[in-house]
Write a protein that binds this DNA or RNA. Structure first.
Length: 217
DNA sequence: GGCGACATTTCTATTTTGAC
DNA sequence: GTCAAAATAGAAATGTCGCC
């Protein structure tokens, strides 16, 4: 039975902090184990519980994450970055399996349904996998246990990275525009330094609005 | 045919509400 | 008190349509 590599990302909509793309590789027969461990829609799992689940998943599966800093997100579009990260994860996953091209890739579609075939073709081209070995569809993070596990891993790793950033920049929340802490942090930073912090995605509307309002911008 | 605007689709999160 | 689902609000990319 082919191994299954689930891929998902966290931090797509955040104005502060990185985008994290994660992959979880399990033997086909190991999918039931992921379900038993509690791999399911990560949005329905409380933040602290996610860490416990990932600890169990990491013992039963191969886990890999690619962290993409905010400044890199500023320079390229998210879909292209996610595709490159996914290709890197597929490459490493292939190297840890014993057979040539034994992987089936399943991931959350990062594009509109009409654009999924083109996305699959690009990923196939980047990885050397046949298109038939790649599956991408909406809500895969809640429908497929390997993608659920990848989603949990991406969120936990992003949370840990953000916690590290808190030690350097202070508490700015989790980085999403809807959080009051995020806007307060950016407003204060901009007022004190006259520029946005290096962990900010300056292309985001939230950042642009603050720059437009800033007297020093 | 090329370009821009808009609609649609996805993702993310938090908050609120209701059931157990 | 805990958990799940729905609502809401932020982001970007793609596809379609109308205009030049």
């Amino acid at each position: 039975m082919k191994a299954v590599l689930g891929i998902d990302e966290a931090g797509r909509g955040a104005v502060l902090g990185p985008l994290v793309v994660s992959g979880v590789l399990v033997p086909g027969e190991g999918l039931d184990t992921l379900v038993e461990l509690g791999a399911r829609d990560s949005k329905a799992v409380p933040r602290e519980r996610r860490k416990e689940l990932l600890a169990g998943i990491a013992q039963a599966a191969w886990v890999k994450a690619v962290v993409i800093p905010a400044r890199v997100v500023d320079q390229e579009n998210l879909t292209q970055l996610e595709l490159s990260a996914a290709a890197k994860i597929v490459e490493e996953a292939s190297s840890v399996t014993r057979h040539p091209s034994p992987i089936t890739v399943v991931m959350d579609a990062p594009v509109a349904p009409g654009a999924i075939p083109a996305f699959r073709a690009r990923l196939a081209s980047a990885t050397g996998l046949p298109e038939g070995a790649i599956s991408a569809y909406p809500k895969a993070d809640s429908l497929h246990p390997a993608v659920s596990a990848a989603s949990l891993a991406a969120k936990v790793i992003r949370d840990a990275y953000v916690a590290y950033l808190h030690t350097r920049y202070g508490d700015f929340g989790w980085g999403y525009p809807g959080e009051g802490k995020v806007v307060e942090f950016l407003t204060r930073w901009l007022a004190e330094r006259g520029e946005l912090p290096p962990i900010c995605r300056t292309r985001w509307r939230t950042a642009k609005r603050l720059l437009d309002r800033s007297p020093v911008a």
